[in-house]
Design a protein around this nucleic acid. Structure first.
Lengths: 185, 185
DNA sequence: GTCTATAAAGCGATAGAC
DNA sequence: GTCTATCGCTTTATAGAC
């Protein structure tokens, strides 16, 4: 299962054949089908892990009793930790684009996650904590576009383990305080 | 050609068969092969358009005679315009992950682009225009991860044309000035 | 639980008529 | 310049021996 997600991410789900996967695992194709009913089932399980992790994060964010700006900051930073902890699965989630039933359902769940993130931003603007001269939906897309980009370049095991907390702090710093050299809190 | 890139982006290059493309164009499979030597050739041309546009942008950025911070700001905002102008092609560039010769070469060229963007950030930090407490390479990945994210949600023709200049300004505002409500220039 | 062998369908690409 | 028909190969998945 772990190997499957890894190979799907390396070469793409459609470009990976069960024979490729079997070779990678050092067994024959048929051996895989004894444990797994289909290739699509592997994809479904992987997507479920990634989407489940994201959903649980947002559920916890919703339950936090604090100002919207604090909830947003917390969610942004925790998103980085969730992405890092479930990197292969979430990477697959962000790359799904097909139109099989499994993929369509995954896209639906992902859109729901994105909608909740947009609400967090909207609330923070309404509260007066964020600059109001920018469209909240656009800000949400940019903010979590930045977070999601780490599936493109975060490669654990590549030498020493990456400093996930450092990345979370950097994203928070860039997004909320900006890059310009100036007096900040 | 235009239709091919669009369909590749919708369903993925590997998941799109020449028969799919033929159906979309309202002709038979063979008719396509009269104009195009192979499926991979379509991909190559599309990737070339996207990568060419990005390379030209960076070449122009390199020639600009101004402080590094201004060059970086200019490049970030112009990137948005280049992405919007060549959206299908650049989207395909950002999604390439296979290991055919065409795709490997595209990945090489993309890495070169990313390296140049990182240099722009590094120069701005060295110049003292950007906060120095963050790793320049990380900042570069976040900054252009935010820019590139617009291939995920910018869909022209979806009602009215999107306000590309507004998006460019918003990205610049978020990245350089930050989201916090405070006194800004 | 893993193997070899194979079925059934789909793939990229070609042949040759019109 | 487009068509029908088909080649050669790969795909997902199964059958049946061990």
């Amino acid at each position: 299962m772990r190997k499957a997600i890894a190979v799907f991410n390396e070469r793409g789900y459609d470009a990976t054949s069960m024979e490729d996967l079997a070779r990678e695992l050092g067994v024959s194709k048929s051996a895989i089908y004894h444990h797994v009913p289909s290739k699509e089932h592997l994809l479904e399980q992987a997507l479920d892990e990634g989407l489940g992790a994201l959903s649980r994060l947002l559920e916890e964010a919703r339950r936090r009793d604090e100002p919207a700006i604090a909830r947003l900051r917390w969610t942004v930073e925790q998103s980085v930790h969730v992405l890092a902890a479930h990197l292969p699965a979430v990477t697959l989630v962000l790359r799904v684009r097909g139109n099989s039933p499994v993929e369509v359902e995954a896209l639906r769940r992902r859109r729901a996650v994105d909608a909740e993130l947009a609400f967090l931003v909207r609330d923070a603007v309404a509260e007066g904590s964020l600059r109001a001269d920018l469209d909240p939906d656009l800000v949400s897309r940019l903010l979590f576009g930045m977070v999601n980009s780490l599936t493109e370049w975060l490669h654990p095991g590549h030498g020493s383990d990456p400093d996930v907390s450092g990345i979370a702090r950097a994203i928070s710093a860039v997004a909320f305080d900006g890059l310009e050299r100036a007096a900040r809190s």
